[in-house]
Nucleic acid binder design. Structure first.
Lengths: 337, 337
DNA sequence: TAAAAATGCGAAAACGATTAAGGAAGGTTT
DNA sequence: AAACCTTCCTTAATCGTTTTCGCATTTTTA
């Protein structure tokens, strides 16, 4: 490994001068600067982020905390897309992305905060996790710049998709198609779920639609199997709904399967709708009516916000950034005469 | 930030002693060690990986290079699962995972190798990328421990899924169902594709099955749209195949759509099969016959191999680790009378 | 022309850890 | 009692940078 010292020796200057030349500082002669840069290139110099970070207290490294049922959250389509977009932006700005170690086996185990200090992250992005986890809260209460996705801590910035508006649009659309017996198999009780549920009831109320309480079932996100069971229950009722909403597109597939197992078809007999708008949704038969989340925008906003918090901590306001989704009307919701 | 220096001051010992106590070295008195550890905990000490790495030349950080069409590869179901498994293992061993910056915009742009040196990665895992990229080759020719996934450099270890065996099993199964007019919409020309194709032809040959050359079409991986077009072409032929294989499960969905658009149904009129065995495959209607890749095993093997290369560079053999997939017989391939 | 200002560079400390070498105190062996 | 180990701790160097301060030298200003 060739270091600044090697370059300094070769160029007959001091290490300080090399550093200044390579960093384009102004107290070094034009000629010397060029010579040093040229020599550095020739010698195949590459900087050492560790030393630099140690000295400057800036690692240009961002920690990402995505945990999904003990796994990384990588396998979660929606979050993988958000992360992908986030990553692109921060990398363009010279930052790298490191996963915050969430191994439970490691000895000694570091908490999320300890791990973040250990690696010297300049900032942290959190998504797709149990936000009531004490370790997450500890991290949120630290002085490390932080943005959350799809959740808001009261003293931090976050990016949330507009679940209320999205659900409103979706339910309005469904109502406009003539449905009045609408069921909703929603996800676990989270902020996201609560917003959607509020919108769901609101639109029904506005349209003077009353549904049995147990038309709303608390399922789980991304669980095809559980959703299938819930749908079975709904379909076995005497007052069967004409349309069923699901927490996400995956879950909707569970519904689709259940409907078919009952010898019924979508959308002729039962209409269904998902949420998220994953690539696949449009490719299903019938194509799924859903709300497409703008994962690209969510990732970008989160990245830009975090970078600003890191680089301009004084002037950057804490805010909640709301990203709208868009209705993608597929073929899975039929018009009721 | 409390450092060893602070602990040393508080405990009235030298920094060296603190370091040795916390690292459980044996030239520290039992009593002192305990006292130091206790104090460290009380003071909320957390180590600094940057300083440690700078001094020891070991970052306990692993670089991951996943690039998919200019994106991170995160959105690629198969690789996301492999990475997830890889991550779990290395994290259990105290290593962290950082993405190798692949931004094209960043100024100055570091090559993959330069970036790896910059961050001081102890090792690197590469998958899902154009392996003929000069930068990838530069990285492979460096002295950084390396494992590849689904590709082999001749002087490095790698983990590959057993595409030859998988495809053999799949085609044999299909032949056993009575199919003789079998088409294959395969992916781009990569090592993976070539192995599968070889197996495909081999099994046909063994069964004295001859197919028109243009039953084999070179499509792309994970492109539902392109696959749909290719399938259209196959179905419009007078000598229409009875079964079509696809490069992956996503692509198979494109096929499914095309078949249905032709007013035909799967598997009654046309049988189809995918590859990879993504979660969704089993949930499609009809459930997709496919080869399930053992992403868990692939990730684990890659991780263990890399850790061994890092920690025991002398004794660790270079090898190709082959991971078998398993046939998942769905309902998408019918028996032909 | 003398004083003031600007320019270009180096010395050295610092960031937070690890580790080789050495030394004092006490115990054990001859 | 001399010689020799152990045990436990310290000193100091080191990793590769950045950055403050100061010192020449040159240029500008009065």
């Amino acid at each position: 490994m060739v270091s600044m010292k090697d370059i300094a020796t070769k160029c007959n200057v001091s290490v300080a001068t090399v550093s200044k030349a390579l960093n384009d500082r102004n107290d070094v002669g034009e000629e010397t600067r060029e010579y040093i840069k040229k020599t550095a290139k020739e010698m195949g110099y590459s900087p050492n982020s560790l030393a630099r970070a140690l000295r400057t207290n800036r690692s240009y490294n961002i920690g990402v905390l995505f945990v999904d049922e003990g796994r990384s959250g990588l396998t979660h389509d929606y979050f993988a897309n958000v992360l992908d977009s986030f990553k692109a932006v921060v990398e363009d700005h010279g930052y790298d992305l490191t996963f915050i170690n969430c191994s439970k086996k490691r000895e000694p185990r570091l908490s999320y905060l300890e791990h973040s200090r250990y690696r010297g992250y300049d900032g942290v992005v959190i998504a797709c996790i149990d936000f009531s986890d004490p370790e997450v809260i500890e991290l949120a209460n630290s002085d490390i710049p932080l943005v959350t996705i799809d959740y808001m801590f009261n003293n931090h910035s976050g990016v949330v998709s507009n679940n209320y508006a999205g659900m409103t649009e979706l339910v309005k659309y469904i109502v406009s198609k003539g449905h009045r017996k609408i069921a909703y198999v929603c996800g676990e009780d989270t902020a996201v779920t609560r917003n959607r549920l509020a919108a769901f009831y609101k639109v029904l109320e506005e349209n003077n639609i009353e549904i049995p309480d147990d038309y709303v079932m608390h399922g789980a996100y991304r669980s095809i199997n559980r959703t299938e069971k819930f749908t079975d229950a709904l379909l076995d009722r005497p007052d069967r709904p004409t349309c069923i909403l699901y927490s996400d597109d995956y879950s909707a597939m569970g519904g689709l399967n259940s409907v078919r197992r009952h010898g019924l078809s979508v959308p002729e007999d039962i209409s269904i709708a998902g949420y998220d708008g994953i690539t696949l949704a449009a490719k299903l038969q019938p194509s799924l009516t859903t709300i497409k989340q703008d994962t690209q925008a969510i990732g970008e906003h989160a990245a830009i916000k975090l970078l600003n918090l890191i680089e301009h901590p004084r002037t950057e306001a804490l805010e909640q950034i709301v990203v709208d989704g868009t209705l993608v009307p597929g073929k899975s919701v039929a018009e009721i005469k």
